[in-house]
Design a protein around this nucleic acid. Structure first.
Length: 274
DNA sequence: ATGTGTTCCTGTCCGC
DNA sequence: TGCGGACAGGAACACA
């Protein structure tokens, strides 16, 4: 999403912002639309699952998509193309009009998304960001980090990887796919994984995320790219949403299973994930 | 401290 | 075709 938005909005002025309802999951901050009108977007960044839109007003707009949130670009598109604006649709909650003719619409059927404004100077102290673990694609994330964070923990590794304080930005799909690639059962206690297997896990996490980003994400139901197109990483799933199918690992004769852990579906191959 | 279960909201799919 | 129930990519919160 960041890669789709940056070429369209970075360096441009927000001419007008319309909040079509006062709240998403939580209330929008005081004066939301006014604070996002007549300000220039200096930078489009990301931390974990939060989009960070830096403004020359000294504030940063934080955006989380929740489960069903989309950021859709219309009007002036990257490369000088023009895509007609669409009529307002159900669940279009926030509309950004950008200098140069682009419009960005935040649509979120389930309204689990969030937006907030926070001073850029103290951004890392924002409650949603302060406790986050390292970026999985950054240098601070490696097997040694997992070893330290998993030490002594008896919680299933699936739950530990979904904990954003351990490593930032992994969701249910990418945890399932990474554990399968690393040959680790989602039920295994986090503190009982041999160091060599943590090497494989850290590498599997990076590989899954790299491939998923290149594919534009996974569009199972709700996810759309900023141009409205589907991502296609779902075609690369080896276990997620594949209960009853044969394991994709070469030479493995297992059958993918599904079980609920901590309220979320887990998918794994009992034969090659231990 | 560390773990699990519930909740927010709407849409879709499946079985009857 | 209609209806009820299960389920959905997240994360805050209550509680054991």
């Amino acid at each position: 999403m960041r890669r789709g938005l940056a070429p369209v909005i970075e360096g441009r002025v927000l001419l007008r912002t319309e909040a079509r309802r006062p709240d998403l999951r939580r209330p929008l901050p005081e004066g939301f639309a006014a604070r996002l009108t007549g300000v220039r977007i200096t930078h489009v960044g990301r931390r974990s699952k939060y989009l960070l839109v830096g403004l020359d007003s000294g504030e940063t707009l934080l955006i989380h998509l929740g489960m069903s949130g989309r950021m859709l670009i219309s009007g002036a598109m990257p490369g000088g193309f023009h895509h007609p604006h669409r009529a307002a649709e159900r669940h279009d909650h926030v509309v950004f009009e950008v200098e140069g003719g682009a419009r960005v619409t935040f649509n979120d059927a389930r309204r689990f998304g969030m937006m907030d404004l926070w001073p850029t100077a103290t951004l890392e102290a924002h409650p949603a960001l302060a406790a986050l673990g390292p970026e999985p694609l950054g240098n601070a994330f490696h097997a040694g980090h997992l070893r330290a964070r998993f030490a002594g923990r008896r919680t299933p590794v699936k739950a530990a990887l979904l904990d954003q304080r351990v490593v930032a930005g992994l969701g249910n799909i990418y945890v399932a796919e990474a554990l399968h690639r690393a040959g680790i059962s989602p039920h295994r206690a986090a503190g009982r994984i041999a160091p060599a297997r943590l090497d494989a896990l850290a590498e599997a996490i990076r590989a899954v995320l790299d491939e998923a980003i290149a594919a534009g994400g996974a569009s199972l139901r709700d996810h759309r790219r900023t141009d409205g197109e589907l991502g296609y990483f779902q075609h690369s799933f080896r276990v997620y949403d594949r209960a009853g199918h044969p394991c994709a690992r070469p030479g493995c004769a297992g059958t993918i299973r599904r079980a609920v852990q901590a309220g979320r579906s887990s998918y794994w191959c009992p034969s090659c994930q231990r």
